[in-house]
């Protein structure tokens, strides 16, 4: 009877491939047995079959009984931080997009309609992208967490495994990673959509006229990948901080590793060929902001030529600062 096969299919379709054939055969036997008992050897009708299936109940629930464990991509443990991060992300994406919209209107009021269409379209491109990234990060965390637990199961639990009571010195204020995540998302959005506004702005009679960009627009799309990579790494770091809620030596090592990766990637970028706008000085001059051979020209040129060096110095100082701050936290913890 077709209805029986449909029922069995509805159950087994929800089960792992490896168990399907066996359970399918078993269920078929069971239903035939139940039908036989019901009709006492007489011919079975569709109605009998339906009654038996009703007795077995919703195939979804039966399949659930067969499945031993619930499978999650993002488990209950991560549900709350997941929702928090998702909300922060979506709020910041909307804020950034609205901000971008307002800036475009200020710069170019004539294109209001066009900008508005872009603004609406960006909801359909940016929001799914943001949701996708958040999910991807949490799926990864869940995966690492679950596999990590499997390794620990062999060990016997002892009271010393208990987590420390929250210590004010070690606690990470929730506002800290949340602010950081919002900041990085905004930077990320600007890196993707408005890198051309990253430069010296020139106003003519109080109205925005043009920008002399710091970055080389021809090579920027290639570098954008790296910029997105380090920004995503930074966001992952903040999410982990948000979830952990306190400093541990593992977390410190984790953040230092991410910091080092960031510094290395930035070093490779700024020292790489054609990262900065090669025609910066000329464009600045063309824009009429400085005149060649003037004193200010030489000052600006000096600053511009040493920009790479200063980026390097700032990054390295930042890294050392982070390491020292981290080391101080470890010392506090061990006291």
């Amino acid at each position: 009877m077709e209805i029986i096969d449909r029922y069995i299919y509805a159950v087994t379709q929800r089960l792992p491939q490896s168990q399907r054939a066996d359970i399918s055969q078993e269920l078929k036997g069971l239903i035939t047995d139940m039908l036989e008992e019901r009709t006492d050897g007489k011919r079975t009708t569709d109605k009998d079959a339906e009654q038996v299936l009703l007795e077995l109940g919703d195939p979804k629930q039966l399949a659930e009984q067969y499945r031993e464990t619930k499978k999650y991509i993002i488990g209950p443990e991560f549900y709350d931080p997941f929702m928090t991060v998702m909300k922060i992300t979506l709020y910041s994406v909307v804020i950034v997009m609205s901000f971008e919209f307002v800036i475009q209107i200020i710069i170019n009021p004539a294109s209001l309609l066009e900008q508005f269409v872009d603004y609406i379209v960006s909801f359909f491109t940016m929001i799914p992208m943001a949701i996708g990234w958040v999910i991807a990060v949490f799926v990864l965390l869940e995966y690492v967490q679950v596999n990590g637990q499997d390794l620990n199961i062999e060990k016997n639990w002892t009271p010393s495994d208990l987590p420390q009571l929250p210590d004010l010195k070690r606690q990470i204020k929730r506002s800290e990673p949340i602010t950081a995540i919002i900041f990085f998302i905004i930077v990320m959005a600007m890196a993707v959509f408005s890198s051309n506004y990253f430069g010296v702005w020139r106003f003519e009679t109080g109205e925005f006229a043009t920008v002399v960009p710091f970055l080389n627009e021809d090579t920027y799309s290639g570098y954008m990948l790296f910029i997105l990579l380090i920004l995503n790494l930074a966001i992952v770091k903040e999410i982990v901080k948000l979830i952990k809620g306190k400093w541990t030596s593992k977390l410190l090592i984790f953040t230092v590793v991410i910091d080092i990766i960031t510094v290395v990637v930035v070093l490779l970028m700024v020292t790489g060929p054609d990262f900065w706008n090669p025609a910066f000085m000329q464009e600045l001059e063309q824009a009429g902001m400085i005149t060649e051979r003037s004193e200010s020209y030489e000052t600006v040129e000096k600053i511009w030529e040493t920009a790479t060096l200063w980026t390097l110095i700032l990054m390295i100082v930042g890294l050392i600062w982070n390491i020292i701050a981290g080391w101080l936290k470890v010392r506090k913890m061990n006291k």
Partner: peptide, 24 residues
């Protein structure tokens, strides 16, 4: 014993069980 004979037997002895519980 196969599944359904066990269901019948248990129910006959007053241990109520659904096949959908017993088989899994």
């Amino acid at each position: 014993q196969y599944g359904y004979s066990l269901v019948t037997k248990l129910n006959g002895e007053g241990i109520h069980v659904e096949p959908g519980t017993l088989y899994p």
